[in-house]
Computed example of a mutant assay.
Amino acid sequence: MLRRSAAISAAALLCLAGAAGTAEAGSTSLYAPSAVVLSIGKGTDSGALTVLRATTLSCMPGPSGTHPAPEAACAELKAGFAGGGFEGLLASPNPDRACPQHFDPVTVTLDGVWEGTRTSWQYTFSNACVMGVTLNGGEAFAF
């Protein structure tokens, strides 16, 4: 009877040790996390912005989230992230496409964690047309 109890106790300890090892392994990763919330809103100040649309995007360990094209959006953010900021998402406006000159500000925001570091980025365009021709690629904010 004592041998049976010892065998059961040893099996229970191995099971608990395995569960603890799994929990520890799950908390460490080979890649720094990249998960953000992207939004498009009316206005110029992110504090008083009227959010029109928003989506979640996780790029590490793999593309996912509520974004309709997570793979393309992650690739665009990765390419646009230069020198610690997302200014690489902006391109010179296409000279072949004219936009109206009215002022109806639209602000895009990106908040979350990128490559393991807390990040927050925003950019205001004079109107939605200018936003469409200035965003390089446009996949990240196409939702």
Score class of each variant (00 low, 15 high):
52 L>K: 08
50 T>D: 15
119 T>K: 04
1 M>P: 09
95 P>H: 09
2 L>C: 02
45 D>Q: 04
121 W>T: 01
44 T>E: 13
85 G>A: 11
1 M>N: 09
119 T>P: 05
56 T>D: 09
63 P>G: 02
37 V>G: 01
97 R>N: 11
41 G>A: 03
66 T>S: 11
46 S>H: 06
34 S>M: 05
113 V>K: 01
107 T>F: 11
63 P>Y: 04
69 A>I: 10
5 S>N: 15
86 F>Y: 04
58 S>Y: 06
57 L>H: 10
80 G>L: 05
116 G>P: 04
139 E>K: 12
92 S>K: 11
48 A>W: 09
4 R>K: 04
20 A>Y: 08
54 A>H: 11
91 A>Y: 08
19 A>K: 02
23 A>I: 14
128 A>G: 15
104 D>M: 05
40 I>Q: 08
20 A>Q: 10
70 P>T: 08
141 F>H: 09
57 L>K: 08
52 L>S: 12
59 C>E: 14
130 V>H: 06
7 A>H: 12
86 F>D: 04
19 A>N: 07
83 G>M: 01
8 I>H: 05
47 G>T: 08
71 E>D: 14
97 R>L: 15
122 Q>H: 13
1 M>E: 13
63 P>F: 00
107 T>M: 00
49 L>S: 06
15 C>H: 07
94 N>T: 02
79 A>V: 04
43 G>Y: 07
10 A>R: 00
88 G>P: 13
94 N>Y: 01
21 G>S: 02
94 N>K: 03
85 G>M: 08
25 A>K: 10
93 P>E: 12
121 W>L: 07
80 G>F: 00
124 T>W: 03
18 G>N: 05
77 L>S: 05
42 K>S: 12
105 P>D: 12
4 R>V: 11
134 T>Q: 05
66 T>R: 10
68 P>F: 07
40 I>D: 00
105 P>S: 04
59 C>R: 06
82 A>S: 11
55 T>P: 02
60 M>C: 06
30 L>H: 12
28 T>N: 13
46 S>G: 07
125 F>I: 05
37 V>I: 11
18 G>V: 05
30 L>K: 14
68 P>M: 07
59 C>A: 04
128 A>D: 13
20 A>K: 11
95 P>I: 03
3 R>D: 15
3 R>Y: 13
25 A>I: 14
38 L>N: 09
21 G>W: 05
142 A>R: 15
106 V>M: 08
29 S>C: 07
56 T>P: 03
115 E>W: 05
27 S>D: 15
51 V>R: 09
93 P>Q: 04
2 L>P: 08
20 A>N: 10
76 E>W: 04
67 H>K: 08
139 E>F: 08
63 P>Q: 02
80 G>A: 06
89 L>Q: 02
14 L>E: 07
87 E>W: 13
32 A>Y: 09
30 L>Q: 14
67 H>Q: 06
104 D>E: 14
17 A>N: 10
5 S>E: 14
130 V>L: 13
41 G>T: 10
22 T>N: 13
120 S>A: 14
75 A>H: 00
85 G>N: 15
11 A>N: 02
94 N>L: 06
84 G>K: 01
129 C>K: 02
107 T>V: 04
36 V>A: 01
100 P>R: 01
115 E>A: 08
7 A>E: 14
